[in-house]
Write a protein that binds this DNA or RNA. Structure first.
Lengths: 250, 250
DNA sequence: ACCTGAACACCGTTCAAGT
DNA sequence: ACCTGAACACCGTTCAAGT
């Protein structure tokens, strides 16, 4: 349509460069200290150029958050393709959420911040569309696990609930548990003695049992089997977690 | 210790006045537009005086968030004292969370924002202590429901889980569901067709069933019984919700 | 002892001027 | 067509001066 002197690839590479530098700044100084000034200083372009790519700070934040969502969607997809029973795969996908939160705490935080009021309102339409596509991919992974569970009869849809509602139940379980327990800061009262991976494990199994998702807990794999499966699907991720001095304890 | 010319009551009243005005500003313009300048303009005191009460914007935010927590703790307590079986009371307490989110969306948002990085870090020690006391009261309400369930044998503690872990499971279920579904803004993809009260109802019952919390779903009260119980415990709150043009639909 | 508001440093955004 | 950075409005915080 409009004539362009700069090709599309160069523009996209520049945008990615800005995003990468912003992520570096967040990792180093925390998201609460991210500033357009600092981003511009970090990058070989001027303010005007940065504002040509992002309509404002919120739009940049959503771009970073979209990158986080892409990583997360990939982890979920790998869990959904694991060679195990459907219940096992769903448990894996819940844990892929936790692996993401441990491995990229700064990206997990941007995911939270993207839910703040007006971030969506002040972002560009394209960015919001891109986000919806990523969300669809992520939910698609969960969806496929539940569909296959129904198909092989290991799960029967509860009365008055459809597949979308079951997808959401899983999503919100992981979201709630990980958000409330994985914050870096000192634990608040009532959260003492709670270990996020253990609670995620327990609560997932209670949910699955409540749905009568076969095999039930009494026959199911224990935490050591989960650990082995995680090692198989996420070898490099677990190695990175270990490098951070953190280890999943069951 | 130190001599005071202003009495403690007057100081506390002034602090509350500042908080109330800040809440009004948030209700009117949204939390993202809350400014110390605007708070000072709204109030018959100077900047210096406001900063005598709050160490900074984050401290004011936490003060507002504490007020929200006090309201929430009261709702939870009332649910825990309802004259019904333990499973019914736990369901009620989960719904009291939702009632709070619908009735005070702006306070629910401050609860979210208080979890942002550095809000706790930049707040005064007293404010954080006050928050922990409120959290203890809230968790105490849930705790008492579970304790009584165990006592009357309607619930048996799962292997490798203690009461605190069950409290947390309930808390995070409500938190996840309500946070992801109750945002005012246009629903994102994958959340279409999901009604927060219905999902909260379903997921609570799946959790209870997964725990074998008696009476199980097949024998338990339906949504109409819940509605009646809510009407009994939260008559004025439900009336306020209706005034807002919203109604709980099961 | 207590309060005030000018002053400062910093931040997000724009746009006239340049190439 | 594209880029630059000075300039502007606004925000959080402080503190010297007042009473």
């Amino acid at each position: 349509m409009t004539p362009r002197l700069l090709d599309e690839n160069a523009l996209q590479a520049r945008e990615q460069q800005i995003i990468d530098n912003a992520v570096t700044l967040i990792t180093q100084y925390g998201i609460e200290h991210l500033t357009m000034d600092k981003v511009v200083a970090q990058v070989p372009y001027s303010k005007g150029t940065v504002y040509k790519h992002f309509t404002g700070k919120e739009d940049l934040l959503l771009a970073i958050s979209n990158q986080a969502l892409a990583i997360l969607a990939d982890l979920f997809t790998r869990a959904s393709q694991f060679d195990g029973c459907s219940r096992e795969r769903m448990l894996m996908s819940n844990f892929s959420y936790l692996i993401f939160a441990i491995l990229y705490p700064e990206l997990f935080q941007t995911e939270m911040c993207a839910k703040a009021p007006n971030v969506l309102g002040k972002s560009s339409e394209e960015r919001i569309q891109a986000r919806e596509n990523l969300e669809a991919k992520l939910l698609g992974a969960i969806h496929s696990i539940i569909t296959s569970a129904i198909n092989d009869k290991s799960l029967i849809l509860p009365k008055h609930m459809n597949i979308e509602q079951l997808c959401f139940a899983n999503w919100s379980l992981g979201f709630g548990t990980i958000t409330l327990l994985s914050n870096e800061v000192e634990q608040c009262s009532g959260r003492n003695g709670l270990i996020v991976e253990r609670e995620l494990f327990n609560q997932s199994n209670i949910l699955f049992d409540g749905l009568n998702w076969l095999p039930l807990t009494k026959d199911k794999m224990g935490s050591s089997e989960l650990k082995k499966a995680l090692q198989q699907v996420y070898p490099s991720e677990l190695a990175l977690i270990k490098e951070k001095g953190r280890e999943l304890q069951f």
